[in-house]
Design a protein around this nucleic acid. Structure first.
Lengths: 300, 300
DNA sequence: CCTGCTCAATACCTCCAAGGTATGATCCTT
DNA sequence: AAGGATCATACCTTGGAGGTATTGAGCAGG
């Protein structure tokens, strides 16, 4: 049996007349007669009663008509859904993120992606940079977000956004009384750095900037992410360099100050990584959204 | 697209290897390669990633696999159900019956039919003989049950059972004190006859027997069916000749007595009628059950 | 009662495309 | 470097889907 048989059968059942059905199907009458005969023979069931006025469904034919219509509708739906999936408009996208990325870029980006592809289910997984790489290779995620990424043999990188840096200080800290803080002033104060884990990371960047500005930072504590860092600032552990977006964290007892006299390249970038050999249309669709987002960010 | 494409696609998806899939499908590898290419082209979607180790499903392919399996299962189910329907094992059978037929033969017969064809829904319609004929011709019923039927041009008859007759009398009636009653004794007592409506009917048969036994019955009342007749017996309207099976009706104040010295052919038969041009397998199946039932009845 | 009409079925032909064989083209393994 | 997988391509063969012409069977109208 064939989908053609179903199509022909439904036409004949609806027209109750082989000639008219053949016309509707744009074929001639005899082949249609034969196809119906074949179908009946294959099923071993008489589907039509031949009357002088045309074809009339038997009970079994009536039942088969319902089934045939259903199957044809499902085939239709299957192709349509598969095509949508093939265009990246339907499916599931697993995304690896790190703790504080959630603060700024990611929500906006995901919002924009959701608008374009409402039928794609996005699942977020919080994981470190190393975990992201492993998960990417094992295909547990399709993209990962992180900072300080460099391309690898099998992993591509796309920059998402660039952020300036602020310093988070306790509200009653001496630096909090100044409108702005010179970068070099930070030499005087214990610093909280993040993230722990795989180096090189943001920590090394901060140390590099300090060196360029002629001081060795006094590290009071290393923490996992910006959120924890700011929490420790509130508790008086020291000051903490954080990306712009961290200001979303309105911690009681913590204020943010802009920095002046900063070293060159005083910013951090957020990038996303993906498998270079991933041809998935979902990834392509997501990357397109990332590029659009980045273009929008740059303009601002 | 074709069911063949689905079958091939599922095989390749499951084997993750065109060669093995081709072997499983008993075709050679190149045609299978082409069929898969065709399918992908028709959908406009890449379903597989070709790796050096074989074929790997894309996300869209994964989705299509689920759909394809579903469709194939439905086709399977549709053919199977249609075949069952074609053999009369599935469907709906509308049956016309008359009031008191429900007492004996019909329930047993329907029970036996239900056992053989559990997926056939039997719908009972109570109607008179004339209504049954009309309903048969309009295809509102497939078979009808009645007594005293004779074949017509377009209507066939099949006998179902034969029953003897008893007389129903009030418990304190003089005849109730005898173990058996001679048929001629009924001449003395008012009789309740049934059914009203189309003649010839059971009424004429009773009058014929009376005539043969040399008396004119004294008709006290004509009623619609045996049940009503027995009810009137309880109320003292007279005696009533009923088929054996009516003894199922244990009416308070009514007893049944067997008859002796009965005229020849002192029995009634129950038959069923059907459209002669009805080729429905359901009817054939039912008739087969009727014949089997009748064979069982005869043996007893 | 025959004739013409309207169906579906049959006979026979044509040709496309599904399937087969032989052979690349790659990539991985040894 | 060689051999073995694996999928893709080239080319041939043939079954069957579709076409035309015709037959056969009911039914209606003159």
């Amino acid at each position: 049996m064939d989908l053609r048989h179903l199509r022909y059968f439904v036409a004949v059942a609806e027209e109750e007349n082989i000639g008219r059905a053949a016309a509707r199907l744009h074929i001639s009458q005899p082949p249609l007669t034969r196809q119906i005969q074949q179908l009946e023979e294959e099923l071993g069931v008489t589907l039509f009663i031949r009357t002088p006025r045309g074809m009339e469904l038997t009970q079994a034919g009536e039942l088969f008509l319902a089934e045939a219509r259903n199957i044809r509708a499902l085939v239709e739906q299957a192709t349509e859904r598969t095509q949508r999936a093939g265009q990246g408009k339907l499916g599931r996208l697993d995304v690896g993120i790190f703790g504080s990325a959630i603060l700024d870029a990611i929500p906006k980006l995901l919002l924009s992606f959701r608008n374009r592809y409402p039928d794609v289910k996005v699942v977020l997984h919080t994981m470190t940079k190393a975990e992201q790489l492993e998960a990417l290779r094992q295909r547990r995620i399709t993209v990962g977000f992180n900072r300080m990424l460099s391309p690898l043999d099998d992993i591509g990188v796309r920059q998402v956004s660039t952020e300036g840096l602020l310093v988070a200080v306790q509200a009653d800290h001496p630096l909090a009384h100044q409108p702005v803080v010179r970068f070099a002033e930070l030499a005087e104060h214990p610093m909280i750095l993040f993230p722990t884990g795989a180096r090189p990371s943001f920590i090394d960047k901060v140390i590099g900037w300090a060196t360029e500005s002629g001081f060795q930072p006094h590290i009071s504590q290393e923490v996992g992410d910006a959120v924890t860092g700011v929490a420790l600032v509130a508790s008086g552990f020291g000051v903490c360099l954080v990306p712009d977006s961290a200001t979303t964290l309105q911690f009681p007892g913590v204020v943010y100050r802009t920095l002046t006299d900063t070293p060159p390249n005083f910013f951090v970038d957020l990038s996303c990584i993906y498998r270079k050999d991933d041809q998935s249309p979902l990834l392509a669709a997501f990357m397109e959204t990332v590029d659009a987002f980045r273009a929008g960010e740059r303009k601002r």
